[in-house]
Computed example of a mutant assay.
Amino acid sequence: MTNHYYSENPDTAHDLEQWSFELAGKNFHFVTDSGVFSRQTVDYGSRVLIEHFDGENLPEGVILDVGCGYGPIGLALAYATGRFVEMIDVNNRAIELAKSNAKHNDIEQVDIHSSDIYSDLHQTAYAAIVTNPPIRAGKQVVHQILSDAAPLLKTGGSLTVVIQKKQGAPSAKKRMEEVFGNAEIVAKDKGYYILRSIKE
């Protein structure tokens, strides 16, 4: 059975839900389905990441949302920053939902497509990479997302990650320090850490 939200094609029966949630000052209308992450509400970690994402001093260019799910982070940041956001996920069901949610919320500056981590990107360099990584896919996958982000960022670009302390925030921070030479805890909220590294 491939029923995990990090499966390419979840085989759970469809069970569509519709609801609204305010992110970045906009009331978003989401449609979600079985087989995707946090389908009944925008998960708390994603909310904290959106709230603490700093787009002020970034270089020009595109934001990459890794593991976008049905779209809350990428769509909210596209709206909040006015930047183009490329949104990727391995889960094809999530990708279709994200495309539909972009359309229903009139968010046009997005490129939403399937990619297993960074295997199929549409840009060569990004102003920022954001991720609420798939913890249940395992530490190796999470750390690959962190490690392989550095070469994809422009100088001055940032990697922003949300991860729970109990699910590996300290080791993620250490990995980011090894890769980037810096890693800051931007926020702590209900056990969720927002970690940010800058490519110098």
Rank of each mutant, 00 (worst) to 15 (best):
D11V: 07
I63G: 05
F21C: 13
A24C: 07
G69N: 11
H14K: 15
K103V: 12
D11A: 04
G55P: 07
D106N: 14
G35H: 09
L58K: 10
A98K: 07
L58Y: 03
E8I: 10
L64S: 10
N9M: 08
E51V: 02
E8C: 03
V31L: 07
V85S: 02
T12K: 12
H29K: 15
H113D: 09
E60Y: 04
Y6D: 10
D65E: 07
G45W: 00
F28G: 14
T12A: 13
S38L: 06
N57W: 00
P72H: 12
E22W: 00
R47C: 09
A24W: 01
V66F: 02
N91G: 05
L97G: 09
G61V: 07
D89S: 08
Y70A: 13
D116A: 12
N101E: 03
T12L: 15
T12P: 00
A94F: 01
S34P: 03
Y44Q: 12
N105W: 04
E96D: 12
G67C: 05
G25Y: 02
Q18P: 01
T41V: 04
V85N: 03
S34D: 13
N9E: 08
G82W: 01
I73S: 08
N91Y: 04
I50N: 13
Y6Q: 09
F37A: 13
N57Q: 08
W19G: 15
A94E: 03
F84Q: 14
I117Y: 00
H14Y: 04
V85I: 08
I63Y: 02
V90W: 04
I88D: 02
L97Y: 00
D65A: 05
V31P: 06
G55F: 01
Q40R: 15
C68A: 12
H113K: 13
G25V: 01
D89N: 11
V42C: 06
G45E: 07
E60S: 14
N91P: 06
F30Q: 14
F28D: 13
